[in-house]
Design a binder for these strands. Sequence first.
DNA 1: AATATAGTAAAGTATCTGCTTAACTAATTA
DNA 2: TAATTAGTTAAGCAGATACTTTACTATATT
Lengths: 116, 116
Amino acid sequence: MHQKKPRQKKPDIDRIFHALGDLTRRAILEQLGHGAVSVSKLAAPLDITLAAVVQHLQVLEESGLVRTEKLGRVRTCQVDPIGLAAAEGWIRDRRTAWDRQLDRLEELLAEENPEG
Amino acid sequence: MHQKKPRQKKPDIDRIFHALGDLTRRAILEQLGHGAVSVSKLAAPLDITLAAVVQHLQVLEESGLVRTEKLGRVRTCQVDPIGLAAAEGWIRDRRTAWDRQLDRLEELLAEENPEG
DNA sequence: AATATAGTAAAGTATCTGCTTAACTAATTA
DNA sequence: TAATTAGTTAAGCAGATACTTTACTATATT
């Protein structure tokens, strides 16, 4: 009774940020934002080989940022928002930590200097 | 009259995500979330050389994620939230693109299948 | 059946990255 | 002033990374 769902693939922050660290992979994610597409349509505007695109897709899929499915001979790719949400969450946590820090500083200043 | 402020360093998405792609650099950012610290305090828990930490800090500073200032012989480091906000924004854009896509899909399904 | 299309897999390679060591400068402290 | 502390810089290196080419499989089209 320690796990409600057999989570399909828990987002791995390390792999996610590593995947996001590459310009081409981010370009792929941007394209996928407009809708699910096949591997070769993904490759068309990218100025690298199909083989290279497939390698990037492997990284993206292993990180959980993208899900793909093969029907017949065409593999269709789409963004998995869970992964993106995880990355966004990590950053937001850092930002709120920074905000808390700022608040604390303001408190200290207010204590030291009670009336402007 | 085409620029209000001489922006000190416009956030560069490419450098930012590259910087975030490294585990050690993210650990540095997490530590900086608790407050501004010196280079050697930053290095203490990191199990790598001071020199290596300095190199990571260079990457973080060039990306705009961190700002540092040297007073006497000690350099103090702190998060620059602008950079983090830029990264968070990029991700949010991708997610909302995905959401729009999902909405469009729901509309299509609703049209094809008007009443359950 | 022959050809074209969509993708995969493996091997090789040039470049990038994260790290170390070592030698150095500048600011404290004893 | 001598020793310590905090950080910097450069050189070098092992392993990772983003590609390429080539050869291949499976599905679709003619």
